Computed example of a mutant assay.
Amino acid sequence: RRNLEKSTRAAALYLKHLHSLFNDWLLACAGYNAGEGRIQRLIRRYPYIRTFWDISDDMPIRQETLAYVPRFVAALTISENRSKYGFMQPAGNQHRQYELVKVRGFVYLDRLARSIGTSPRLLSRMNPEFIRGCTPPGNGTYTIKVPKGKRDLAIAYLGRIHNKNKGIRFIVYMTRKGDTLYDISRRYNSTISHIALVNRMNPSDLLPVGKELVVPVNSAKGIKNNRASYMVREGDTIESISQMFGVSVVDILRANSINRPYFIIPGSSIRIPNVIALFRQRPRSITYRVKKGDTIWAISRHFSVPPSNIMRWNRLTSTATIYPGDKITIYVEQS
């Protein structure tokens, strides 16, 4: 929502989807405000509804929606003839005062700003969608706005960062009880200094439980024969360790000749085979609890997956209705 262009495109796509459901643009607008499920239930209850104007005050629909659509029509009418209604026409074609740069991977905006000789505050205002002041960890590609005339400097800086981070992938790790930077660095073939630098912390800082750390995972070194070792901690299970490293339970059991998978001792060392899988993008399962106003379309946009996939994963039909409290399974790429 913080990116005006992206949110406008998303809204247009959603309105197009709503029009395909209701075959009426004003009903689509009502669905945009009230939620498509509410309008679908209203139409099922009153089958004679064909357009928005067939909806009356005594029907179970909020007054907000009944007022929203006429206001939208009024705003559209005024925008098409501003001078007639006493509004000034916008001045000519406004040349945009920024250029676009493609960024792959994890980058702090303030460091980029200083490298191109501009204010970190200005760059942050130009890119409000990056609420944490950086691009998300992972291998995704993002578009960043930079002041006009700064594009070449930005590309040069990003090129240096890319070369410096060659063979490194950034992941997000949630700290647990007893974690130290040393343990985490060993587990992910990283270094204490690199983790501290990326997270802007002191290498000697204590780690509170539940803190999100960006961990630079070095896939270019530290792995011998695609194997690594892990020191078992209290509360660990073979299943939790397999999920941590993206390796199957069966492979871990075979590599360690474990016959009793439910009995592992804290402090013992476990070999992790095929650890190179850690550096691939692997889908993970999320159980999402439906909230009031949610739709399949809205959930799909939130998790960046096609609506058809959500319906397939949960065996839903195109006419299915979801309700608050329902649980939906979603598969997303690990970050």
Rank of each mutant, 00 (worst) to 15 (best):
I328R: 06
I78E: 15
R38G: 10
L197D: 14
S204G: 06
S7T: 13
I252M: 03
F279N: 04
S119A: 13
T65W: 07
R301F: 01
L26A: 12
R271L: 11
N81P: 00
N309A: 01
G149L: 09
A28F: 03
L109F: 02
R176Y: 09
D24A: 06
N274Q: 15
A113I: 00
V69S: 02
P306V: 01
R111T: 11
V69T: 07
S185M: 12
R282I: 14
E80G: 15
R282T: 13
K166E: 07
S185T: 12
H95D: 15
T317R: 12
M231P: 00
Q63M: 02
S269V: 10
A298R: 05
N309M: 04
A74S: 15
S79M: 12
N189I: 02
S308G: 02
V146L: 03
P136R: 10
R200S: 11
T319Y: 10
G235Q: 11
V247M: 03
N33H: 10
R187K: 05
L27F: 15
Y323V: 14
T8E: 04
A12I: 08
V214R: 00
H19V: 10
K166F: 01
I155A: 09
G35Y: 07
V332S: 00
S285V: 12
T329R: 13
T8M: 04
R9H: 01
G105E: 04
I184C: 00
G210V: 10
Q334I: 09
L18V: 00
V209H: 10
S185A: 15
R44T: 09
Y188N: 11
H194P: 03
D251V: 03
A34Y: 11
M244V: 04
I328A: 05
K148N: 07
Q89M: 14
G133Y: 09
I252T: 05
Q97V: 04
T319I: 07
H194C: 04
T180R: 03
M231Y: 07
Y98F: 05
A156I: 06
K84E: 15
A154W: 05
D294I: 07
E234Y: 14
Q243P: 08
K327E: 12
S193N: 15
K291P: 11
G267N: 09
V103A: 03
S119H: 14
I192G: 05
R1C: 00
Q97D: 13
